[in-house]
Simulated scan of single mutants.
Amino acid sequence: MKTPIRWGILGAGKFAREHMGPAIHQAEHAVLAGLATSDPAKAEPFRAFAPGLRVFGDYDALLADPEIDAVYIPLPNHMHVEWTKKALAAGKPVLCEKPIALQEEEFDDLIAAREKAGLLAAEAYMIVHHPQWQRAREIAQSGEIGRILHVDGAFSFDNSHDTENIRNRSDTGGGGLRDIGVYTFGSARFVTGAEPDNVDAHVQWENGVDVYAHVSARFPGFGYNAMVSMRMFPRQEMVFHGTQGVMRLTAPFNAGVFGQAEVHVETDGKVVRTERIPGVNQYKLQVEAFGRSLREGDEYPCPLEFSRGTQRMIDMVFAAAAE
């Protein structure tokens, strides 16, 4: 029987409490062993599903503990680089929430820290672990829909009422592009294996954070059009349009929460095939993939080099919007 990887979490935020904490504890060969928070009351909901949880009064104490094998970081965006580097320096493999960095050049330090420590460090970009996206990449690369000529993406929600949300605060590295643009950009890159040549963008701002962005881009061989917003009715969709068919993905980013994950493929003669993928917890799959990389040396599906490419595209969007 394999000894479980003992995970520690830095911070007791809502996402860790509702999604990643339970996923860690449910994952095979993993256990949620530690939580660092200055408020012991915030640990109680975690103890409901992880009764043996140890609580640390600060982040450094958790990193220093030899009984913590790996660390998950769900802190506000502007703290990700600092604490990822600290975790690696403390000898802990680290899975950090997206965006792991705020600018592409910050990846230089992250990759250097990873190489120096000789440990796995990765962004928690969970969709690449979901069978929906793995299947989408297989279909696209099989040639079933022909040569892809255009990709459309949309991801929106409305959190205008929640003014203190870290997504609505410039001092915490908030904004829609960093929060959800990573999905519309990164998923297109994941499926096609291509990188954008140039970008055009229109961005709307509120209190120093981007709340709406329309992005047009050229990739080698195909065009790209996407919208992300934190001020619109919820919508999630990705469409890959080829010379011989169209592939649509429903609930592509919050599968099981926004709706059922499905892949719809329409080919010649208006024939539509629907592949439904219910009941999959992509966060759990992410933890298990991380664990296999630690234990067995499996290649991790989302290395820092992939995340760097998505951040490069985000930087291109900000630069284009400023012109």
Rank of each mutant, 00 (worst) to 15 (best):
E82L: 01
P76T: 12
A12V: 06
A43Y: 01
L32W: 12
A43I: 07
A36K: 02
P76N: 06
M20S: 10
A50Y: 04
P40L: 13
H19T: 13
E18T: 15
D60R: 12
L32N: 11
E44A: 15
A70K: 02
M79Q: 10
P45G: 08
L62R: 13
K85G: 00
G91T: 09
A33F: 13
P40H: 14
A70E: 04
E44Q: 15
Y59G: 01
G21C: 13
T37P: 01
Y59R: 06
H29M: 13
P40Y: 14
D39S: 14
F49C: 10
D65C: 01
W83E: 00
A90P: 03
A90F: 01
G57A: 01
D69K: 03
F46L: 09
A41G: 15
P66Y: 07
A41D: 13
P76V: 08
R54A: 15
A16P: 06
G57N: 09
H25D: 12
A27T: 14
P51G: 08
D39E: 11
T84I: 03
A89Y: 01
T84Q: 06
K86I: 00
Y72C: 12
A30G: 12
V71F: 01
R47M: 07
F46W: 09
D58K: 08
I9R: 02
V55E: 09
G91D: 06
G21Y: 03
R6M: 15
A90T: 04
G34L: 04
I73T: 00
A50T: 09
R47V: 08
A61V: 04
P76H: 10
W83A: 00
G57M: 04
P40D: 12
I73E: 00
K14E: 12
E67P: 09
P66E: 09
L88V: 05
A27Q: 10
P22Q: 13
K42M: 04
Q26M: 11
